[in-house]
Every structure is written in structure tokens, then in C-alpha cells.
Design a protein around this nucleic acid. Structure first.
Length: 313
DNA sequence: CCGCAGGACACTG
DNA sequence: CAGTGTCCTGCG
């Protein structure tokens, strides 16, 4: 068991960071590396079933229990909206994911939605992941880069990943040939890391399927760049609705004009907005992003019809 | 049948 | 470079 009063399991696992956890009867089941784990949380105590020796340290690491939560919350409590969210979503935490699994997950996430992403990941694991068992229950580990790199496009497509099949295979091949890339990024600054992830040589992407948004997710969720501030369409709505003063009122107007045909944010605008938000929230901006993101999605569920015009009001 | 959802990419001009 | 068409899937 892990004891912490600054942790909320539901908020953390419902925040859309990870895609392999399932809840049934108050217990969450997921796969960490090669072990199946069942979690339940009650009265400040996280109970862990499965995983064997050392599982507490691993889960503690996974849920970033080592973060100075109170201090981080203070640093991102910059306005009344954040103040409200920090109170209502208390215990929401960033998750420290495996970089490779995180990479594939967010390549799949482009131009998609959560149920579909969950489906893709599950298919990939079933098709390519090592089959394991715990207490008579069968499950699959997340497939290795080698396994994905060796897969053929047709089989990948059977996992319903669509046009992302080429990206996933190409990136797997790249990671397989240079396994030090993640550890190198761990020692780099945010900007340098971003530049590496989206870099091109001779017009060809180093890592296919990874643009600025996907890169920010990978950096924030798996490579210790807590200032990363991923901006998807949900977050853009939130920014326009609540933080136009941060990126500039006039700039918002020009944005609305530019995006009225449902186009995605051009790279230049992405980096500009992302930079402004990082400056506004500080070095733990990524934490702030999670609270805002969780909130925007919760509201979206309540009134789906409002999603028709993303940037209005 | 259409539009769109946690974008990225290759291709023009 | 800035703008544009296209990419697979699932769902309302």
C-alpha cells in the first residue's frame, strides 16, 4: 500500500493520459511493463494487488508520488479558475509513463478520440505484445519496438490504426536502431528535446507521426519535461475561452479567422501559444494543463452539441 | 451520407 | 515558409 492524501486515483486515471487502465467495481486494472496490477484507493491509501516485490516503489514512481505536490500546486495557482480546479480535482497527478508506450499511444491519438485510441492500443497489444498470465488471468504486455518494427503494414492495419500504421512502423524502426534517444532527451532542455522529436533530415522526419502536440505529450508524460503544455483542440478552446489575455486578444481574433474551416493549428501558431502558456504557468505548466484538460473534457461531455463551433464564444 | 474527433505529412506557390 | 488536400476509423 501507498499512503498519500495528495492523490486521487480516479482523477488521475480518468484524465486521459493513459489508455490501458480499466475500472470495474471500484478497482482499476492495468499493465505495467510485464505485470498485471489491480489498484483501489480509499481513505488516502492506495492498495496494490499483484506485481510482486518492489511493486510499491514502481507504482510510487509511476504516479509521481515523489513530486512536491503542494509546492507544485502553489506554483500553478495563478488565477481563480486554476484555484477552483485545484480544489475540485485535488489529487490529480501526472503519470510517469514508459516513453515507448507513450510514443505509440500518442501517434495513435492524432485525429482520433479516446474510445478509438483505447481500441487501437488494445489491438496492438493483443497482436504483437508478449502474452502473459497472472492468477489465471491472461493479458498482454505492450509490444516492443523490435516487434512493431518487424510487423508488416497489413497486420498493423488490422489493428485499426489506419494511416498511422506507416508512422508506427517507421518510428519503431528508428527507436530500435537508436535506443538511446529517450535517455539523451532526459538530459536536454525542453526546447532542445522538442527540436529533436520533430526534427527532419533531408526533408524526412526523424520520427514519423510526431508533430508538436504529440511531442509535448511524450515530453510531459514520459520524459520529465513538466513545463510542456500540449495543445489539442480541447485545450485550444479552453485557452480561447479563459486565457485569451495570455496569448493576446487580437491574436485570438486572427486565430478564429484562420481556423474557421476546421483546420489544425499551424506549427508556428502552436509554438507561439505553447510558449505563452509555459511563460504564464511556469516550470510546472504541464500540471496546470492536466487540470484544465480534465475540466474541458468533463464539460464537453455535458454538452456535446456545443462542439460544433470550436472557437466561438 | 456527412461531419468530425486529443494532427501530421507531403505537396505547391 | 504559409496555405491546402488527404490520411483510417468510429460515431452521432
Amino acid at each position: 500500500m501507498i499512503k498519500s492524501h495528495n492523490f486521487n486515483l480516479d482523477h488521475t486515471l480518468l484524465s486521459g493520459q493513459v489508455f490501458r487502465w480499466k475500472k470495474k467495481n471500484d478497482a482499476w486494472t492495468g499493465v505495467i511493463e510485464k505485470t498485471l496490477v489491480r489498484l483501489s484507493y480509499e481513505h488516502d491509501v492506495l492498495e496494490i494487488h499483484g506485481g510482486g516485490r518492489g511493486i510499491e516503489n514502481r507504482m510510487s514512481h509511476y504516479f509521481r508520488i515523489d513530486d512536491g505536490y503542494e509546492s507544485i500546486m502553489r506554483s500553478i495557482k495563478t488565477d481563480s479558475l486554476m484555484s477552483t480546479l485545484l480544489r475540485n480535482l485535488r489529487g490529480l497527478r501526472l503519470i510517469r509513463q514508459d516513453p515507448w508506450e507513450c510514443t505509440v499511444s500518442y501517434i495513435c491519438a492524432t485525429n482520433s478520440n479516446i474510445p478509438s485510441i483505447v481500441n487501437m492500443i488494445e489491438n496492438l497489444c493483443r497482436r504483437f505484445g508478449e502474452q502473459l498470465e497472472f492468477e489465471g488471468e491472461a493479458f498482454h504486455a505492450f509490444p516492443s519496438p523490435a516487434k512493431i518494427a518487424a510487423a508488416d503494414i497489413h497486420t498493423l492495419r488490422e489493428c485499426k490504426v489506419g494511416y498511422r500504421a506507416q508512422f508506427i512502423k517507421a518510428t519503431a524502426t528508428r527507436i530500435l536502431n537508436d535506443e538511446t534517444i529517450y535517455s539523451r532527451i532526459l538530459n536536454e532542455s525542453y526546447q532542445e528535446s522538442m527540436d529533436i522529436l520533430v526534427s527532419k533530415t533531408l526533408g524526412k522526419k526523424l520520427l514519423a507521426g510526431i508533430g508538436p502536440k504529440v511531442a509535448d505529450c511524450i515530453l510531459l508524460f514520459s520524459l520529465e519535461k513538466m513545463q510542456a503544455f500540449p495543445i489539442d483542440t480541447w485545450m485550444l478552446r479552453t485557452i480561447v475561452n479563459h486565457y485569451s489575455f495570455v496569448i493576446g486578444e487580437e491574436y485570438v481574433l486572427s486565430l478564429e479567422a484562420k481556423l474557421q474551416f476546421g483546420r489544425s493549428l499551424p506549427p508556428h501558431d502552436y509554438s507561439r501559444i505553447s510558449m505563452k502558456m509555459r511563460e504564464y504557468f511556469g516550470r510546472f505548466a504541464g500540471y496546470a494543463q492536466e487540470f484544465l484538460y480534465y475540466n474541458s473534457r468533463k464539460q464537453g461531455q455535458l454538452r456535446p452539441m456545443q462542439q460544433k463551433r470550436p472557437l466561438s464564444v
